[in-house]
Structure formats: structure tokens, C-alpha cells
Nucleic acid binder design. Structure first.
Lengths: 200, 200
DNA sequence: TTGTAAACCAAGCGCTTGCTTGGTAGGGTG
DNA sequence: CACCCTACCAAGCAAGCGCTTGGTTTACAA
């Protein structure tokens, strides 16, 4: 467990992955990612953690609440990790690479399945919950935009910042469908190739 | 209706958009795109075209068959359009731009909603149907790969062909979530910006 | 030992789902 | 006219869904 994560756990901002609730959320992320939220039943979810379906509602008040919790904690973790990565990079190019590596890591390491859920299952949330998640996402995106704008001032980037960010969001997010960490290209190399898209 | 489309209709390879079945498929694409396949009920679908839910099963043997048909015809149309666009471009750069414009158009013009369904709802198909759609997609992708490889030989491109294609797939596909044709950037300009990602 | 609260089970309720059934209105054809 | 065939409706079935309920087990503190 990295320092950022344990800090968040001990401060109570996110659930301990070791706890019963944490295990349940990981199982939920796994099922929601691979089958989709709607196609995952509470009975499957219960079976995945070895309890009856009804017992889930002792931990969460609804199936939707599980989805929301998975999404919420995932963003919180990754915002914190991005802050940390930015702090350790000095020049604009290194900062941009750091964000790319962070986002790729968020998709392909511990929070990977939850990130997939976050991106592809937001429509299953009620309207007010969607707004809340969107608000957290805005915080995340503002880190990207300010970094890209620093790159523009340094002459690294010729694209419009908003458009570049959106193109990169798609390019990076889509890796969830094809990239496998054990394949013949490392995450770092993939990050480099992605950086080469962005800078001239 | 463009020449490519009417050719496909009159040869019987795809359904006439004017027919009852065609209207039903458009309504289905609309609902599946905006609500998701699982969250769309046959009752809603019937109401959208002004018939009872049970009457749908006179035209299609199952809800899944509607989804499959929407996906299948969408790929067929867009493969045909890409062939046509490639024929009318001469040098590698123009060919690449033509493909980018084609893919952006497929997402943001008549087949747009169906393309969204194709990309995000394939998990709702049974296993054998998934394989069939994947096979059609392979045909589509081979057009891209050969064009990118021509670009590499011409010195336009430094990326690995497979990786570049996948990054571009994501970048272009993601535009469905943010680009609006009536906004302040045209599809052609967006295609140009996307081309700038790919070439050095 | 007793009290309390958290964690869980077994059963099933009420509702929605995709789909089936039996029947009918209407236009074209002999 | 009779005979179809296509397109549709009205009704409802069987299955599966999220979730509730009442009660039991377990852990730990007083």
C-alpha cells in the first residue's frame, strides 16, 4: 500500500481495502467492470463475497449506493496521487508525463476496475449523484488543464488545451480495452508514446 | 441520402431507413445510446414508435436481435463509406485525414447514435454474436492499419502502427461524450487537430 | 453472566422484465 | 366474393429483480 493510500485510509476519507466493506467494494468493482452494473445482480455480488444477497443491505442502503461509493473513493484516491506526482516533477514536460503515467496507472493497477466503472457506468446513477461525481471530476480535470497550459507557455504544445485534454482522455481511457500490463510494452513506454502524441 | 447508403439499401444489404423496421432501428439506437441497452425496456421502445411492446416481436425475434441488427448495419455502412473516402484521396496524409473525417462523421452524423451503441453496448450481446461483430470490426480496422503503415513508409508517422491506431480510436471515440456539431469548432477542424496528434 | 450491537441468514414480497398467445383490422389477389 | 398475409393489439405468464423482514449467531464489554 503506497503512502498516499494509507494516508487517505487512516484519515477516514476512504474505506480500508482490508475491511469487509473494502472487500465488498473490490468485488463490486470487478463485477461492474466485467459485466456492467445493470447486468450484475445483488445475488451475484453476495455470492462473490460469500454472503446472502440480503446481507449486502446491512453495509449499503442500496445497490446504487455501492456503485456511488466505488466511484467516489476511486476519484479521491487518484486526485491525491496526481497531486503527489505533480509535486515530484519540476518542468512542464515532466509534469505532463507524470499525469499521463498517473492516469494510465489508475486504469491498469489497483484502481483499474473501479476506473472502468467510473467511466462507463455513470449513467446508472441518479441525477443528483451524477452531479456529485461530476463535481469531483472537475477537480481532477483542473489539474490536467493547468498542466497543459504550462506546457503551452513553454512551447511544447500547439493544440487548444481543452481539445487536447479531451483527445488524450479518450486515448488513455481506451487503453482499458486493449492494453495488458503483462504484454510486450511497459506502462512507462506506453506513457512515453502517449506523450509523443501531445507534444511537438 | 448519400450514394453509398442508397447503394447498400437497394442491394438489400441494409434496411431502408424509411421503412417501419428502419424507423424502429433508429428509435432503438436513440434509446440504447441515451439510456443504455439494459435500461431500455421493450415497452419504451414500442411507445417510441407507437406500437405495443409485444408487436416488436413481429419484426425482431428478440430484444437482443434489435441490438445486433443496429450494430451490424452500422459497421457495414461505415466500412463502405471508408472505402469510398479512401478511393478519393491520393497521398498518405490525405488518406489518413480521410479516415479520421470518416470516423468522426460516423460518430457525429446519421449513424452517430448507432456507433455509440456499437462501442459501448457490445457486452450485452451473447458470446457468438460478439464474435460476429468483432469479425466485422476486424475488416474495418484493417483499412486503418494499412493506411497508417503507408504513412509510416512516407515518414509521416513515428509511432507503432497498432499503438497509434488504438490511441486514435480512443481519442476519436471519446468525442461522442463532448463534441457537439453546432459548437464552436467544425468537424473538419477537429479532424485536422486529430491529424496533428498522429503526424510529426 | 448478562446486555448490546454488529453481521449475517432464510424466506419471500411486490414489481418489472422480455416475451408469448390468441385474436383482429385491412389491403391485395384469385 | 373468399382467401391470405402482414401488421398490429390486449392480456398476461414465468422468471428474475432489488430490497425487506424477523430472527439467529458472534464478539466483546460491563
Amino acid at each position: 500500500m503506497d503512502a498516499v493510500l494509507s494516508e487517505l485510509v487512516s484519515s477516514g476519507r476512504i474505506t480500508d481495502p482490508q475491511s469487509a466493506k473494502g472487500r465488498l467494494m473490490r468485488a463490486a468493482a470487478h463485477l461492474f467492470k466485467n459485466k456492467g452494473y445493470e447486468r450484475t445482480t445483488v445475488r451475484e455480488l453476495g455470492a462473490a463475497v460469500g454472503i446472502q444477497s440480503g446481507s449486502l443491505f446491512h453495509h449499503f442502503k442500496s445497490k446504487e449506493a455501492i456503485l456511488l461509493c466505488v466511484m467516489e473513493e476511486t476519484i479521491i484516491i487518484n486526485i491525491a496521487r496526481m497531486h503527489e506526482a505533480l509535486k515530484q516533477a519540476d518542468d512542464p514536460k515532466a509534469k505532463l508525463l507524470a499525469l499521463i503515467e498517473c492516469e494510465l496507472a489508475s486504469i491498469h493497477t489497483d484502481t483499474g476496475e473501479a476506473m472502468g466503472v467510473l467511466v462507463y457506468e455513470w449513467r446508472s446513477l441518479g441525477e443528483d449523484k451524477q452531479k456529485y461525481i461530476l463535481q469531483l471530476r472537475d477537480e481532477y480535470e483542473s489539474l490536467w488543464l493547468s498542466t497543459i497550459n504550462q506546457g503551452k507557455q513553454a512551447g511544447l504544445i500547439i493544440h487548444d488545451a481543452f481539445i487536447l485534454r479531451r483527445l488524450l482522455t479518450g486515448a488513455i481511457g481506451w487503453t482499458t480495452t486493449w492494453y495488458r500490463p503483462n504484454g510486450d510494452i511497459s506502462l512507462e513506454a506506453l506513457a512515453q508514446q502517449t506523450l509523443q502524441l501531445a507534444i511537438k
